[in-house]
Each structure stands twice: as C-alpha cells, then as structure tokens.
Simulated scan of single mutants.
Amino acid sequence: MGGLVDRSRGNAVLRACGCALAGLFLIAGCTADGTPKGGAASSPPGTPSGTGSPGASPPAAEPSGSTLLPMPALDESKQPRTVAEARDLLGRIIIAEQALGPEVVRSTPFESDPSRWPVLDEGCVWQTAGLPADVLATSTRYFHIPAGDGRGRVRISATVTVHHNREESGWETARSMEEVLRCPRQRLREGEELKNLWGGSFYLGEQMNGWTEDAFTETGEYVGAQDGGPYRYTWSQAQYGPVTVAIAARGAEGITEEAVSAFVVQGTSRMMLHAKQELGKAAG
C-alpha cells in the first residue's frame, strides 16, 4: 500500500465530492444519525423482493425503541486489549443476513480468513496480506440476493475492524480516502473491476454527519465478466472509537441505484448502533 495521506489534506481534496454521503442518506430516507426514518429503511423503487416485484419488501427494521441513539462518549475501559477480546467484540457488532432483509442469503464462502487483510497494491489490484500491527481483529461476511425474475444477483459484504485505539481506526479511514484518490479504477480479481470511483468524508458535525466520528463513502461502477455491467457500486464506512464498520454493495440488472444505497445505509447504521451500545458510556 502507498504512503498515508495527511487527514486534513485528504478531507480538503474530497470535500467537493462529499455530497455523496449526504445524498446516500437522503436517498434511503434516513435521519441525521444515519438510522432509517421511522425505524426502517425506505422502500425505494426497484428494491428486490422475494417474489421479484420491485419495491415489495424493504430491508429489515431497527429494533423498536433503539433507532435514535445519540453519539455516546467512548468508555475506554470497554476497549479490547487482546486479539481474543477484539474478536469477541467484533462478533457482537457485525451483522447477519437477517439484518438486511428476508431476500438476503449467505454467500459461499460466508466469512473471510481472520488472519488476512485486503491490500490495494501499487497496480491498483486488490491482494490479501497478514494483519498489520494496528489491527487486532477484522472480519468480512458475504451475502447476496439471488438472481431471478428478471433481475441479476446483488452482492453485499459487511466488514468490522477492531484497532487498539481511535487514532488507529482514524488512519484506516485516511487510507480509504487515499485509495480512491490513487486508484479510481481497481481490480477486485480476474474479470471483476471497479471503475469511476469517487468518494467523500465528513467528520462528526459536518453536513449531515451526526451519527459517526468519521464517515466515508465511495461510489462508482462494478463490471464483471459473469455479472455484466456497469452496475452501481457503493462502499460506506463509519468509525466509533477503535472500531470501523463498512458495507459494500454491487448492483445488478433490474435493481435501482436507490435500492443498492438503501441496503448500504441499513447495514452500516445497524453495525454503528451495535458499536455504540458495546463501547459507549452509559447515560446518566
């Protein structure tokens, strides 16, 4: 991976593109803290359903009474110190397929190798490597909505990474910003590419970001030898204390861009809610 960017410089460069994040949450019908209005994601036209009817079934709702959680102060005593503690915390934050809706199922493989870490090399090709020193634990889960009834397969992944502290998780977000600047075109694997990538970042309190310490979103197009395309690709990452959470979604034929964004928002906000519940100081 190339050298890290200065965070203030990276934010300044991406500020003009920062409306991507605000637009993402507006599309999905969310409140300022990133949770869906009324406790559930909206039902944009083209949202996949089990019967193949556009807009028939939105992603799953947040638990009743827990959708609006203010930004709590971090309780540093709850931060994991060991790999075992980090993996335990990670397991309580990452979502399962049920959190995204009844149409979403597990892919094979379902979970990433816990000892490996994705790295974007100098040629803008994604590789895997051993975990860096600043990562205690990370995991990615893979889901999809099966193709059928005139629509293609929608692929979704959820990632949680646990660092030692807030500074390290902040640098992870900085690296994400650097990657989209350095590589607006990236190869996932043979026959699969991301193109025309651009992104934006907002600290807590900037624009619509009232739900995470640092929010980053990346948008572009996905093209696959088997899946076709180009189709909508969106990555959304959020930070709370030593934890980052992220959702990536790739659209398909017959699926609207709004539907793809709704799944991204639903997954990211749910995992951020879990992180706040696990690491935040109790009210009162």
Rank of each mutant, 00 (worst) to 15 (best):
L120D: 08
Q98G: 13
V104Y: 02
P70T: 02
L131Y: 04
W126F: 12
L131S: 01
R116P: 05
E111D: 10
G91H: 08
P132V: 05
R106E: 14
T67P: 03
K78R: 15
D88A: 14
P80D: 02
D113M: 06
D121G: 05
S115A: 15
A56F: 04
E97A: 15
A73G: 14
E97I: 03
G91W: 03
V104C: 03
S115Y: 09
T51F: 09
R81E: 10
L69H: 09
P80A: 04
E62I: 02
A60S: 15
K78W: 01
E103S: 12
Q127F: 03
R87A: 08
G101C: 04
A56G: 08
I93V: 14
L131C: 00
P132C: 02
G91N: 15
A129R: 13
E76M: 11
R116C: 07
V105T: 12
S115Q: 13
S53N: 12
R92C: 01
E103R: 01
P80M: 00
E97N: 13
P118N: 10
E85A: 13
D134R: 09
S107F: 06
T108L: 11
R116K: 15
T51Q: 12
V125D: 10
I93K: 00
G65R: 05
R81Q: 12
P118W: 08
L120S: 04
E97T: 04
P54L: 06
G55K: 06
D113S: 08
R92K: 15
L69P: 01
E122M: 13
A96V: 11
A61G: 15
P132G: 05
P58D: 02
T82Q: 06
A129T: 11
W117M: 09
P132A: 05
G130K: 13
T128D: 12
G55I: 10
E111A: 14
R81G: 13
A60F: 02
S112I: 05
Q127A: 09
T47Y: 01
W117A: 06
L68V: 14
V125H: 09
V119D: 09
A99Y: 00
T51W: 07
Q98N: 13
S57T: 14
P80F: 00
S57H: 07
E103F: 00
P58E: 01
P58A: 06
E111R: 07
T47Q: 12
T128E: 15
L131D: 04
P80Q: 07
G123N: 14
P72L: 05
G52M: 08
V104I: 07
D121W: 00
G55S: 09
A129V: 02
W126P: 03
S64A: 15
E103G: 04
G50Q: 10
V125W: 00
R87V: 01
